[in-house]
């Protein structure tokens, strides 16, 4: 009984973790549809700079976002470990290109600390929180904030 109560007040969520540069990030597993190896990504002329291109996912055209550019990290050519994580955020299906996908971890809400409230840059808004995991820090990304309204409007025009 008390365990059920604790679970309600301190829910456990699963997070898919991926690597970008030296850091590990996590996204809510409920928003991840699938993880793909990097195949052919068709560039889109005139697309915003954070768009790598588009892929054909079983007949659906999905836009792939350059997550490194989004996070202001230096560019890197995709390699064997690179993956496209297909996510759904605010009813929009997109792919995010990451260096590698690591694992799925379970985190209690009480284990997550809010992100530092510094920085006014756009990229700061989608850092949802941080937590310690396996002796390292895991940066949790709020996918619903990953694209703002302007971004979504631009992607709709592709």
């Amino acid at each position: 009984m008390s365990e059920a109560l604790a679970r309600r007040s301190d829910p456990v969520n699963q997070w898919v973790t991926f690597r970008l540069g030296d850091e590990t990030y996590g996204i809510n597993v409920m928003q991840v549809q699938e993880v793909l190896r990097v195949t052919e990504i068709a560039p889109v002329p005139g697309a915003p700079d954070y768009v790598v291109g588009i892929i054909n996912l079983r007949g659906n055209v999905v836009t792939v976002i350059d997550t490194r550019r989004r996070f202001a990290l230096p560019p890197k050519q995709p390699d064997e470990a690179s993956r496209i994580v297909i996510i759904e955020a605010d009813d929009q299906v997109i792919g995010i290109l990451v260096d590698s996908v690591a694992e799925v971890v379970e985190l209690r809400a009480s284990e997550i600390e809010s992100a530092p409230s510094v920085g006014n840059e756009e990229s700061a808004r989608y850092i949802q929180g941080v937590t310690s995991h396996n002796g390292d820090l895991l940066i949790l990304v709020d996918l619903n904030q990953f694209l703002n309204d302007e971004d979504k409007a631009q992607l709709d025009l592709l």
Binding site: A72, R125, I127
Partner: peptide
Amino acid sequence: TRVTVLPGKPDWFQGLTRFQGEIIQ
């Protein structure tokens, strides 16, 4: 000392690290 760098932070924000299990900015 492992410093975790967060995207989108100003230059003066070097990142996060842990001392004695506590996350420090």
